[in-house]
Design a binder for these strands. Structure first.
Length: 581
RNA sequence: GGCCCCGUAGCUCAGCGGAUAGAGCAGUAGCCUUCUAAGCUAUUGGUCGCAGGUUCGAUUCCUGCCGGGGUCGCCA
């Protein structure tokens, strides 16, 4: 149950009966939320101020009319008009007990929303080039995309997690040639890796595997013969590496889409370009050089251009390179048309900061290929600076390699990596401090939230030990007398738990999983605070050996806290341990 | 030069068009015979970068400027 949604409906009903002439879209614009100042009550709405002007009435007058409608509502203790036209509600305690009971009843589904109405969403994330293991720069986008996908699932969308494999460019030929050198090495030759090739040691096992499979049979063939074979084996090996890296962070995609399959005769690129041509979205023309800074090798030439500027982009974009092959963007248009034809009307791409210039192009492409029927939201993850004790930090990898994703995860663990990266808005650059992340103190939000969850379990362990005769099964607790939870401390905690559903909705609508992380921190803080109150006031302890009824009710509260924390951590893909080691 | 992101307390950052702008850290003062002190309580600290505009109401939306970062046809 979501009290905020419930009262949004009740206020809307009041408005409809008072002012039947109000258009429905206006009724969707007001909000019911917790007031910033708790002294103002439990709920607050700006409804009167939203509708007053269209009605040609005074906001306070409208507010007071709405407030009067709640005179007979048994859940409402008072409805007062305040300030410029807010209505502040104080609710009677029983509705909070209903919330509490509903949390336990709904369990893992508490907070699940239906704003997606089962519609299909494609979330494309990671899509790292298949030329080696993932490096640390990919981590933020990977975690963000994965958490966003989970969040949208929880909010009622049918989510497909997709990875676009850039396996068509010249870089994968270079990769295959590099692997071929390792193959020769495995056959016993002494080889050097020239500049421009991939020197990484991760290709050594690929070379060995090729040597085992083909022995010397590829060695003296023409490149045209061995390249396709080596490329296929190498790509498969690289994708295995990447999938293993992602698995360390508990990330698993539903679809791995190969760019290569778009190319070739009769492929998606050809059919898409033909279609665009028919629609008049392609023309042959010339581009101005970029303003302010002309590339040294700028060559003015007539080329095939997509009318991106008609769809909000700054300039039209080339589709064919001077050597006649397709640009990356041409393939991307085809790829997004493919998504559209697979039925996706909502698409999300998670990209790195260096791709911000690509956003308008993608939006233009999706707009064009769907004739406006689909939308894409491109989320940019800004840079992460690795830090140690406040100093920028470079991991000392042999031969100055990039820091790998697996290095980070092995150092700090999946939970901490995920939570810390999600405890920031995606569009702000952030520092990632290794020392802090490994600390087990309140400074470290991951630990703080997990500790709160572990504490809920510890309460139950203590209850079982101190009160062996008490039945603390969920069924027994469901019969607890919740009216015993009428202290301000109890109600305050329940109010925070009651905000979980609206937090999910807001975060999902905004595509902002960090809101979940912040909410969890807040809920954990409220629970830790309640815990400490028991030190001074024994009647506020969760386990009271001489008061079994109160203990039962409190255990309900603790179980609800655990459920909310657990549901939230699940959305973020962070584990909820029962005990901290 | 064009485009994108950021600018909120000493530091790191939240803030969903609303009321007196919040949290953590750091600082200050407290709390361990009692459910995990791996924690809690109180308190100091702000011209929300600057200037306009829209609005009943702007930290939030729009425009311009200033400062920081990123990016800029035929790389992916």
């Amino acid at each position: 149950m979501d009290v905020f949604a419930e009262f949004t409906a009740r206020v809307a009903a009041a408005l409809r009966s008072l002012y039947p002439e109000l258009p429905e879209d206006l009724l969707a614009r007001f909000v019911v939320e917790p007031p910033r100042d708790p002294a103002h009550g439990d709920l607050s709405t700006n409804a009167a101020m939203i509708v007053a002007k269209p009605l040609g009435r005074n906001p306070r007058e409208v507010a007071s009319a709405i407030a009067q409608k709640f005179a007979g509502d048994s859940d409402v203790a008072s409805a007062e008009v305040a300030g410029p036209g807010f209505i502040n509600f104080r609710l009677n305690a029983p509705i909070w007990f209903d919330v509490l009971a509903s949390i336990l009843r709904e369990g893992d589904d508490y907070g699940r929303a239906d704003i997606g109405r089962g519609e299909a969403v494609n979330v494309e994330y990671v899509s790292a080039n298949p030329t080696g293991p993932m490096h640390v720069g990919h981590t933020r986008g990977a975690v963000f995309g994965d958490a966003l996908a989970s969040l949208l699932q929880f909010a009622g969308y049918a989510v497909t997690r997709e990875y676009y494999i850039n396996d068509a460019g010249s870089q994968v030929d270079t990769l295959a040639r590099s692997a071929f050198l390792r193959y020769r090495e495995a056959l016993g030759e002494v080889v050097e890796i020239p500049r421009g090739f991939y020197p990484g040691e991760y290709l050594i096992p690929v070379g060995k595997a090729l040597a085992e499979e083909f022995a010397g049979s590829l060695r003296w063939k023409d490149e045209a013969e061995w390249l396709p074979v080596v490329k296929e084996r190498t790509l498969a090996a690289m994708m295995d590496l990447i999938k293993a890296d992602l698995a360390q962070l508990n990330i698993h995609h539903d679809v791995f889409f190969s760019e290569k399959t778009l190319h070739g005769e009769g492929g998606d690129i050809e059919t898409t370009l033909a279609w665009l041509r028919d629609e008049g979205m392609i023309y042959e023309g010339r581009l101005e050089p970029p303003k302010g800074k002309t590339p040294d090798d700028w060559e003015d030439r007539e080329q095939t251009l997509f009318r991106a500027s008609q769809y909000g982009d700054d300039v039209d974009r080339p589709l064919v390179k001077s050597d006649g092959s397709y640009t990356y963007f041409a393939a991307d248009i085809a790829y997004h048309r493919n998504k559209f034809l697979r039925g996706f009307r909502h698409m999300i791409n998670v990209l790195g900061a260096d791709h911000s210039g690509y956003i308008k192009r993608l939006e233009a492409a999706v707009n064009a290929v769907s004739l406006g029927a689909a939308e894409i939201d491109v989320r940019i993850c800004q840079l992460v600076r690795l830090m140690k004790n406040g100093e920028p930090f470079k991991m000392s990898k042999r031969s100055g390699d990039l820091v790998l994703l697996s290095d980070v995860v092995e150092e700090v663990g999946s939970d901490a990596t995920r939570f810390m990266l999600l405890y920031r808005r995606n569009d702000a650059a952030m520092d990632f401090d290794f020392a802090l992340v490994k600390e087990q103190t309140r400074d470290n939000p991951v630990f703080y939230v997990q500790y709160a969850h572990a504490r809920t379990h510890s309460v139950f362990r203590n209850a079982a030990q101190d009160m062996p005769d008490l039945d603390i099964s969920p069924a027994a607790l469901a019969r607890a007398d919740l009216t015993l939870l009428s202290t301000p401390a109890d109600l305050e905690l329940i109010r925070i738990l009651a905000q979980w559903p609206r937090t999910v909705v807001a975060a999902a609508l905004a595509h902002e999983p960090h809101r979940i992380a912040f909410y969890l921190y807040e809920a954990a803080a409220a629970f830790h605070a309640f815990w400490a109150k028991g030190k001074e006031e024994s009647s506020l302890r969760f386990v009271n050996a001489d008061r079994p009824s109160l203990t039962e009710a409190r255990l309900m509260l603790v179980a609800a806290v655990r459920q909310v924390l657990s549901n939230g951590l699940r959305v973020l893909g962070v584990s909820a341990p029962e005990e901290l080691s």
